[in-house]
Amino acid sequence: MFALRRWWTRHALKAGMVTLAVSSAWLLRANDGAMIYEAYNWVTRPLQPGLSREQQFENSYILELQERIVELENQNRVLHTMDDYESTATQKGIRAAVIGRAADHWWQQIVLNRGSRQGVAVGHVVTGPGGLIGRVVAVSPNTARVLLISDPTSRVGAKVSRTRAMGVVRGQSNNRVVMEFFEKLPDVKAGDVIVTSSYSRLFPKDIPIGRIESIDLTKSPAPEAVIQLSAPLPILEWAEVHPFEPQETVDAPVLPGATPENGTIPESGSESRP
């Protein structure tokens, strides 16, 4: 008891400091670093981008429009044979500037300068010049953190716009992603446009992702294609946040005994964190 008291009189300040530091760090972690990102937003406000590099973005816009046209043409052809086609209402998005990147080397994330105060919420879908970028994984009052589709843990249900061949797009930490097809012999060729599929739970359908660069049909267990993303992720300065409610329940049949999150079921083009 005496030893304890002596230890306390000698180390009270130090112990208090350590407790304070650890508990405040834990508190910050508990609310996803919202305060740090608020401070970051405030500090970088004078540096946030104006309009520049317009040429590159214009090119990306043109590419996006071309891909949308290809997608619309294909849809139109399918529509003639279908009666119960439901249209996807496109809502106006929230424009946001990219003010930061991932705070670590293993994640592919960006930080936007719009947050819950402007109506951004977790699960909203983010597009940019060129097409799909990612989805919001954390928000603070004035910032939002976006997990990019190039992140290795990101999965997006996708399809080839020309032939409707389905697959899952996985990130590879650079501007190329890999698409794994569900069929053994998908009808695809280099240059085909990839868009999000209607089976995707976390993304709305028919948003352009990119173009097929090369195909490896011999890959086991599923054929793979390398896709060049049409959005210039490394130099992104602006993005648009679209309100979207992730569908946790879909009508598509799910294998009995399988959890829908594990990404192995064809119908679940999902993306989540382990």
Binding site: V22, A25, R29, N31, G33, A102
Partner: peptide
């Protein structure tokens, strides 16, 4: 070790707690 713990928690807050920094 304490400094590593505190700063690791802070970096977890800014990215994702799994895997932990």
């Amino acid at each position: 070790a304490v400094a590593g713990l505190v700063l690791g928690l802070l970096q977890d807050a800014m990215t994702s707690p799994h895997p932990t920094h």
